[in-house]
Nucleic acid binder design. Structure first.
Lengths: 244, 244
DNA sequence: CAGTGGTCTAGACCACAAT
DNA sequence: TTGTGGTCTAGACCACTGT
């Protein structure tokens, strides 16, 4: 499934070179025109590859002086060390060591869409949605309660047992589109009684909340989801680059 | 200080048209070649403008069929509604209504750099840093404790009173560079005794934590900062787009 | 001044969607 | 087949840095 895009291939190649310490002398990449010759591609493609690296905080580009490697991206004793090909997104928050957690289905119903979600899911509040609650655990430790809503017309064939597996993989198979985009809101909350029961928490122990809308690649809102995580499992890493 | 970049100007123009409901009939922008003619610029510049809009979740681009407006970006009854020109970054987390909160300096010292921060700040642990603690409040309600570390060699002239004002603005003046990039980690924690005292919290009420490194535009690590926020003030909005 | 990254252009060609 | 966005190229020119 590897795409054959020049700029992505070059991005990965440069990234590997960087992580391998190829440029640790100068902590600087060759200039764009030289890279263009070395790789035998246009300067535009090089710029595109470098932009990807800059967007994930691997390098800083400075006009008039060059493209510099971010030491933090390379050092592996940094809290912010690069992991799993991407330090952006929510997967880090609840996928440990690349292994998938177990899923227990707590409830599963079809009901009218809650009013406050209708506009965000781009349906009417008279339309129906699957409403479900799932519990994720890892090595007998429950760490997340997820409450989800999916318009039935998006997945008319959804069965109960699918919800005990990876929903996103199922969607990708059925809809032949990925789920790569989402609006997310991250917050904090004291634990409710349900939290304490399901996640085995004390009353002084809180949860992190992660709620948002997930989109199919074509922009269709696919799911509204609210996740409550044990505070000690909540860790969201991101590289932020403000524009304007 | 408005830059005169074509692609940014067009991005803003299209964004305003979208928010003004100019395309609400079709929820679709004109195709790129048409936009190119309309604005009298190359198609590449249009693509660049559209990419910016796609990156902030305003539109979805779909090969073979067009560029579609994300209804959630326009509807103002959505939780995820666009605000203040950017819904990315930490400013939303602690700047209410565009007003700056008050700042009280709790402590201010010069000391050796804590060992675990030295590599991330790209200095030696024998180097000195300013170490300070600040309390932010808004209308007599304290909502954030910030613990910060800044290498003295970055800001040799830093004075105590500067820390009761906006640090970033001061830095931009002195260094003539912005602070637009950062690695951030978002987490959750039960409140400590200090949290409860300073932020006026009960023992069952938690804090959100926001810690990370802030960089100058040239990539120099400028500050390590740890922020603890009242849970009810913690709200981080972001649009995530996974690559690869 | 030479070297570097940033912007912008004009155009070829490709991949996918709709009809 | 037509129309759409995606990729890639070659090159001009600009803005900034460092010598």
């Amino acid at each position: 499934m590897e795409k054959n895009l020049i700029y992505k291939k070059i991005m990965h190649e440069l990234q590997n070179q960087i992580l391998d310490g190829e440029y640790q002398e100068t902590m600087k990449l060759p200039d764009e025109r030289t890279l263009s010759q070395t790789f035998g591609v246009s300067r535009s493609s090089i710029k595109r590859a470098l932009k990807l690296l800059a967007d994930k905080g691997a390098v800083f580009q400075k006009r008039g002086s060059g493209t510099f490697i971010n030491p933090i991206f390379v050092k592996n004793d940094s809290v912010f060390h690069y992991k799993n090909g991407s330090n952006l997104g929510i997967s880090d928050s609840f996928q440990m060591n690349g292994q998938s957690p177990q899923i227990k289905l707590l409830s599963f119903n079809v009901e009218r869409c809650p009013k406050e979600l209708a506009t965000d899911l781009f349906i009417k509040d008279t339309d129906f949605v699957y409403a479900f609650k799932r519990l994720r655990s890892f090595d007998d430790q429950s760490f997340m309660i997820e409450t989800g809503y999916i318009p039935i017309k998006i997945l008319p064939q959804l069965e109960e047992k699918t919800l005990t597996e990876s929903l996103f993989k199922y969607v990708e198979q059925v809809k032949k589109q990925g789920v790569t985009k989402s609006y997310l809101t991250i917050g904090v909350s004291p634990s409710t009684e349900e939290d304490r029961t399901e996640l085995n928490l004390l009353s002084t122990e809180p949860v992190g909340t992660l709620s948002g809308i997930f989109f199919l690649d074509d922009g269709t809102p696919f799911e509204y989801s609210q996740m409550r995580l044990r505070y000690d499992y909540m860790n969201y890493h991101t590289f932020v680059s403000l524009e304007d």
